[in-house]
Amino acid sequence: MAKIIVVTSGKGGVGKTTSAAAIATGLALRGNKTVVIDFDVGLRNLDLIMGCERRVVYDLVNVIQGEAGLSQALIRDKRVDNLHILPASQTRDKEALTQEGVEKVLDTLSKDFDYILCDSPAGIEGGAQLAMYFADEAIVVTNPEISSVRDSDRILGLLASKTRRAERGEDPINEHLLITRYNPLRVDTGDMLNLEDIREILAINLIGLIPESEAVLRASNQGVPVTHDAVSDAGQAYADTVSRLIGEEVPLRFHEYQKKSLLSRMFGGGRR
């Protein structure tokens, strides 16, 4: 039985897809059979971040509507064994996804995989609710910014009420906070919410903290999940996040501002 994890946030542009791709890659690199599903029907992006956009033939909607088999739609990652991508459709509207259809797909995948990651669309409407409905765990991606934190709290409300676990009265979804685009310098100068504030307000456990990093854009430009950039701060922070997700205890990094030494300022150090 696979563990189903939804990557969600409410607000758009906070790094859901980047995080879903990076965490899925990290899980697979650690030997777990992993599939990452794009639920953003109509505005798919995961295929770009994973670098497989030219290999998309069939998608989630095709599978649900019986136009293609699951094995035809799954894309095998070129870099990591054990990693598969199920892309979203670019053309159909969101109504094409049904709860029964999604359940069937997840049930089938559940037999073959260890982890199923659901990359949620932004918002709190149907698509986002469908992405979280069957989840066992949730990663709530939050920026240290007021509207993102508020939206994350809205999502926590939905996770506690509009999911299968909630409706059946089963154990609640295990909720994790993932803070992205964290800038320790701005936190130090008092112009960015610090991680303790965010954790206190949302009152869920912190699974990871990803610093604002040039490596993220560089990774998406190339279509290579940032986890592969193992020397970068963001790559390492995602690797730490994956370790915590599979139950290891890892100390928090990259949350304090490091003054650059004169030498590293003189001789580049531009690559972080």
Binding site: V149, G190, L193, I201
Partner: peptide
């Protein structure tokens, strides 16, 4: 004036209100 404490205070009020509406 530092802006992060202002954001925190505003958020605490918003979130308390949102939670009272939950359920």
């Amino acid at each position: 004036k530092k802006s992060a404490p202002v954001a925190k205070e505003r958020l605490q009020i918003i979130v308390a209100h949102q939670r009272s509406q939950r359920g």
